[in-house]
Structure formats: C-alpha cells, structure tokens
C-alpha cells in the first residue's frame, strides 16, 4: 500500500489556535497559556497514513490498536494480522485506538511537525470545547440532540456539524476523546496505578445530556480498543519559537 504524498495536507491533522484564557474561564479551570488543537479528532485517513509510514499496517500491535475484522469503522484487521483501510470511510474518526496508541501517534506527529504534540488535559479539553463563551456543550447551553447525539450505530464522519466558537468540530458527541489525565483513587495508595485515562465529549453510545457535558469526566481502561473512543492532538509552539 502506498500513500499519496500529494495529499499530505489531509494526511496530518489541521490545527487551530485556542487563545490564552484570561481571565480564567468559567468553571474554575486554570488559566491556560493557549495552545493549538486539531480541528477534528484524528481521522481514519490520518491514522492510516501513520500506520503505513511506520509499517504498522503489516504487524499486529495490540497495545496500540485493535481494529475489528468487520468493515464499517474505516480500518479492518485481516486474517493475516495486517490492517486494511476502507478508503470511502477515511473521514471517520480513528477508533479502536488505545490511549497508548494515541500517545504513539502524537509522538510520531511531533517528530513530523517539529513541534511538541500530545493529547489535551481534561481541563484544556473542557476549555477548548466551551469556546470563548464557556458553553456547557460545544455549541451552546442547550443540549441539541439532533446535532450531538442522533440515533446511530457507529461513528460519523468528522467535520459535518458546526464548529464551536474556537473553530473546533466534533467536540461534543460522535466519539469520546482520550485525554492525558490518569484516573487516581484520591487518598489511595495507588495514586496513578488504576490504568485508566480520562475520556471527554460523549459518544454515539451514550444518551444522557450530562454524559456529553464539557465538564463531565469519564475514564476508561487505557488499553481499551473500542469503536466509541477516538482522540485529537494538541500541539504547542516549537521550542525555538518560545521567547
């Protein structure tokens, strides 16, 4: 399989500036120095580009991802253990990717862009999702079920619903997005030993408006490979540009 290098722009995420928050945004989130955030969750096409570049389409990598054998979510596992793409599903969010897989993708992208890349923290994610007005859901303070949570049996292509006030798509609904933060048992001995990470934004598998609230925090086993969790990349200015 070869990658069409003429479409490199679509092969890596597009970023948008999320400006510094001053004063602190509503909800008690710490002020942020601003960052760049991918406009959409990482897509199947973008993740496929990375797999091919790294030769990961040819070998199983169960700590990173576990696409199903069935078609429908963009990437498929073949009986031989390789991965194939269904090109017409390239705009779906990349799913079946573990938190470690998302982290590995961020590392690859950072090297490619020459700028630090990682997943957002839960606080960064919440601030970005709320937009300049600090909305409860990405597009406002009313829960718009047809936009955020239409009846669905799988993910939908990214970027098909309106952008929020910062220009970000798909923050609320579609698929959950991995964040940096580990689950900790407050006061417990295993402060970061629970093996789960925060996921944000709700997904087609959940229903209650509260589950989609920008402030709501769920967590999931960090080796989860499921069709309802994806991720988006946060990028910081390249080190040489810092003053």
């Amino acid at each position: 399989m070869t990658v069409d290098e003429s479409s490199t722009a679509a092969a890596t995420p597009a970023f948008i500036d999320v400006p510094p928050a001053f004063p602190a945004p509503p909800g008690g989130v710490d002020p942020t120095a601003g960052f760049r955030l991918a406009v959409t969750p990482t897509t199947v096409r973008q993740y496929w580009h990375y797999l091919v570049d790294q030769g990961l389409d040819r070998v199983p990598a169960p700590l990173l991802h576990g696409p199903p054998s069935a078609a429908g979510t963009g990437l498929r596992a073949t009986p031989a253990g390789t991965i194939e793409i269904d090109p017409d599903l390239g705009d779906l969010p990349a799913t079946w990717v573990t938190w470690h897989g998302a982290t590995a993708y961020c590392g690859w992208l950072a090297a490619r862009l020459g700028a630090p890349c990682r997943m957002p923290s839960a606080a960064e994610w919440r601030y970005a999702a709320g937009g300049p007005a600090g909305f409860r859901w990405a597009l406002g303070n009313d829960f718009d079920r047809p936009v955020y949570a239409p009846a669905a049996t799988g993910p939908r292509p990214v970027g098909r619903t309106p952008a929020n006030g910062f220009g970000l798509h798909d923050m609320t609904g579609n698929v959950f997005e991995w964040c940096q933060d580990p689950l900790t048992a407050s006061g417990g001995a295993d402060a970061d030993g629970l093996g789960s990470r925060v996921i944000k934004g709700g997904a087609y598998t959940v229903r209650n408006p509260e589950s989609f609230d920008n402030a709501t925090i769920f967590t999931a086993d960090e080796l989860s490979a499921v069709p309802y969790i994806g991720f988006r990349v946060l990028s910081l200015p390249a080190p040489e540009r810092e003053s």
Partner: peptide, 12 residues
C-alpha cells in the same frame, strides 16, 4: 459499555 466503572473491558 466498557468505560469505568466496569468489570469487563474491551482490548485489542
């Protein structure tokens, strides 16, 4: 649903 809290998770 295999998100926390849950006794069964889904991995690769």
């Amino acid at each position: 649903d295999c998100i926390d809290p849950c006794f069964i998770v889904h991995r690769a």
